[in-house]
Computed example of a mutant assay.
Amino acid sequence: MKIAVIGATGATGRKVVERALDLGHEVIAVARRPEVITPTARLSVRQGDVLDMPSMAEALVDTDMVISCLGPSGNFSQGTVISEGISSIRKNFSPGTTMSVGITNILAACESAGVKRFVMQSGIGLSDGKELSVLNRLAIHISGRIFTKAVEDKAVAEHAVQQSELNWVIVRPPALSDTAATSKYAAGPLIRISPLRPLSFADCADCLVRAATNEPTWIRKIINVGR
């Protein structure tokens, strides 16, 4: 299968590319700055800006499915634990409209390019918490009150996906960490997970690739993934 990965230079996106290649798929990494990605066997790179729908439509031509690992960008220097932490906090407090506008453009690009299967990485913070424990419901509620703008922007994006005619899957992980893959995670509609237990980027990536290439019962459903 030919999988386009949007957000391929991000922490989850890089792992999605790796996992899809490991499973033998052909991967198209879509990036605003394609020069930062080195093409390899079964990996090609195309330029595409999620804020520019025509460029995205061109980037998605002749692909079977799309996985979006899109997230808000930050302006802090990378490379240290402190800078990464500050950047993460900043992006949640002031996310802009990258998700809401970007996902809307990606959906239009999918339709223009004839792509039917679309997987979106979202977050457990969008859950209403009914499937979770009382403590975890409280954690999501508090997080939502702190990161209101980020939740609102991502909620617009999720709504656009659910209103589309695509065979979509929305995947909601908890906080993510740069730890080793375990393959020991739970995933499914209304699966009870803990938003307080981080999931590795690699395990989240594995779930996203599963959602794109397997799991027919996940189509047009919201999937919780975590531990």
Rank of each mutant, 00 (worst) to 15 (best):
L23E: 13
T12M: 02
A186D: 15
V36K: 11
E215C: 01
A108T: 02
S164D: 09
S68K: 07
N214P: 02
A202Q: 14
A187G: 10
A186Q: 12
S194N: 15
I222N: 12
T179S: 14
A59H: 01
R227N: 15
I193V: 08
L135Y: 09
A29C: 08
Q78F: 04
A175C: 04
R14V: 03
G10F: 02
R32C: 00
A157C: 01
V50N: 05
P195W: 04
R46C: 11
T38Q: 15
A175F: 09
A150R: 12
P54A: 06
T213I: 07
A20K: 11
T63L: 06
E158M: 00
D153W: 01
I103M: 00
R46L: 08
V27G: 00
E131Q: 12
A57C: 08
T12D: 10
G74A: 14
P195T: 13
L138F: 11
L166T: 01
L166Y: 00
R220K: 10
Q47R: 12
D153L: 00
L190H: 13
E152F: 01
T12V: 08
N136R: 04
R42I: 10
S194W: 07
N214K: 07
N214I: 10
I67C: 07
R192C: 10
I67P: 09
P34R: 00
E26A: 14
A160K: 08
V134F: 09
P189A: 06
S177W: 03
Q163G: 08
C207A: 15
G102S: 14
S164Y: 03
R46S: 07
G10W: 02
L199V: 12
S88H: 06
A180K: 12
R172I: 03
K149Y: 02
P216A: 09
M120C: 02
G85Y: 11
V36M: 04
V36L: 09
N224C: 05
L196I: 05
S87Q: 14
M99N: 07
G144N: 13
C204M: 11
T38C: 04
A211T: 05
E35K: 01
T40G: 03
G96F: 03
I6F: 03
E58Y: 03
Q78Y: 02
G79V: 00
I193K: 02
F147S: 06
T104R: 08
M65I: 04
A150Q: 15
P174G: 06
T12C: 12
T217S: 11
N92V: 10
